[in-house]
Amino acid sequence: MACSENDCGNEAAVRLHIPWDEDREVCTAHARVLAQQDGVVAEPLEGVDWR
């Protein structure tokens, strides 16, 4: 599954639970940035090698 962020071709490895928007599946790079916002919870996707 591809990262849901525009113009990103990386594989999604994290599901972000965002209180003010829909949940998103994103790559680790986008997860690092977006998960720093208050209220956002990052959950690793099962079966994905995120290293």
Rank of each mutant, 00 (worst) to 15 (best):
D49W: 04
R51K: 05
E5S: 14
H17E: 07
N10K: 14
A35S: 15
G47Y: 11
D23E: 10
D7Q: 12
N6Y: 12
C8V: 10
L34I: 14
R15S: 11
C3H: 15
L16Y: 03
D38T: 07
E11Y: 06
E5D: 12
H17R: 13
A42L: 01
S4N: 14
V33A: 08
E46N: 11
C3I: 13
D38W: 01
V14G: 02
N6D: 15
D21W: 00
T28N: 05
W20V: 10
P19W: 04
R51Q: 10
W20Q: 11
R15T: 14
N6F: 13
R32L: 04
A35W: 03
V14E: 02
P19A: 06
Q37L: 07
H17S: 09
A12F: 12
V26H: 03
E22F: 01
I18Q: 03
P44R: 11
R32C: 01
E11D: 12
S4E: 15
C27S: 07
G39D: 09
R15L: 13
D7V: 11
D23R: 00
A31G: 08
E22H: 02
C8R: 14
C27A: 08
G47S: 09
A35Y: 04
D7S: 11
R32Q: 08
V33P: 01
N10E: 12
P19N: 05
N10P: 00
L45D: 09
A13I: 01
A29P: 00
P44A: 04
D7C: 08
W20A: 10
M1Y: 12
